[in-house]
Design a protein around this nucleic acid. Structure first.
Lengths: 203, 203
DNA sequence: CGGGGCATGTTGACCGCGTCAACATACAGG
DNA sequence: CCTGTATGTTGACGCGGTCAACATGCCCCG
């Protein structure tokens, strides 16, 4: 940081902007991200970001995309082991998903909040979210082949699963759920119910 | 509320504000709601709304509350016929929920978007959303007693069900779901899977 | 029946914000 | 070294939320 102050040029302002915006979002919400504020935090002027992003929306989109990538990485990590009861592993993925949202509520909100991100379709965002879906579809397909999940369009099942965890995450971070309920237990129950509904019981 | 309409001189501005704001939200999103714009639409000045709401957030909260009431009424209506295959009736409730969101995307977004509604807890909003949850809990309790849904805390099950439909609604209106998929079929599949997971199979 | 008080509506002003245009500066490659 | 381009700065504009001061009309009290 002291280094920045010394040079007229920042070095890697673009990356810094994304990081700093994410930090501000975590600290005090997306509304607190202001071109002026973020510039001042990084020791640059309010106009500087415009050399790297066409407008504020584009910057926020970049932050959202970074969020999707982090979430994706986290889910991938929990996916690694050909672990025990593979349904249990799938359950754990859902748990990680919700936990991510709880740990980064404002960031998660931004990722899914079309409102904050202009009306236009943002291809980058779509791609990042799409990657998440693809991973989920792959995992489901594997479990189908193991006969642990009923047949049918794995993509549709992925959407159902995504809906369940996203809905729970969303209700939790918007504080629509009684704070007295045991969150861990609720997460477990949600994933359990979901997997119960998807389980193959043809034989 | 019978004779309220004729009170004071320029009609019932408060109610008009809520209605007009809701209309503007439907037409062009919450961002388009401006004190100046809404005033001009109603033929009053930009300051007039401040005689009825302390600030813009309060007005939007009122709109959101109205949304919850409408949604609640709609779900209640689909609840009436207690005769048909009762699980099918529950499924239909979920369907109505998602359909409401699809028909009023911006309004629905506002109802759940804490971002747009200040950080403060809005007791009115909490109450309206709480009523929705209560209704759901009641319905689930009935189905439990009929042995169609497994035992356990009905409140937790209500949260699970709410998560599923809210998640699907949210993903749909944020356009996170491939437009090529059959929405009706996806709704059906989601509610079906959910109910499958909740179904009592102890005997 | 008339005046006063209060609820309601209006206007001017302020500040913060996103954004653009004009300007300044530094780094790179000849 | 010198200059062009990428990068950063500053001034200005318009919009939007909000407050304070002012205006207006309705109802109630005397």
């Amino acid at each position: 940081m002291a280094e920045r102050a010394r040079t007229y040029h920042h070095g890697d302002l673009r990356a810094s902007l994304v990081d700093e915006a994410a930090a501000m979002i975590s600290e005090s919400g997306t509304a607190s991200v202001t071109m002026r504020a973020i510039g001042s935090r990084l020791g640059v002027s309010r106009g500087a970001p415009y050399r790297h992003f066409p407008d504020k929306t584009a910057l926020l989109v970049a932050v959202a995309v970074a969020g999707f990538k982090r979430l994706n990485r986290r889910l991938g990590a929990s996916d690694t082991g050909t672990s025990p009861s593979s349904v249990e592993q799938l359950r754990r993925m859902g748990e990680q998903y919700v936990r991510f949202a709880l740990e980064h509520p404002a960031h998660y909100r931004l990722m899914y909040g079309k409102e904050a991100l202009a009306r236009q379709d943002q291809p980058e965002l779509r791609k990042a979210a799409g990657a998440l879906l693809e991973n989920l579809v792959d995992v489901i397909r594997v479990h189908q082949q193991r006969g642990e999940i009923e047949g049918g369009d794995p993509r549709a099942q992925a959407y159902v699963a995504w809906s369940a965890v996203h809905g729970l995450a969303s209700l939790l971070i918007e504080k629509q759920i009684d704070p007295n309920v045991d969150v861990d237990e609720l997460i477990r129950q949600t994933t359990q119910t979901l997997l119960g509904g998807l389980r193959d019981r043809s034989p």
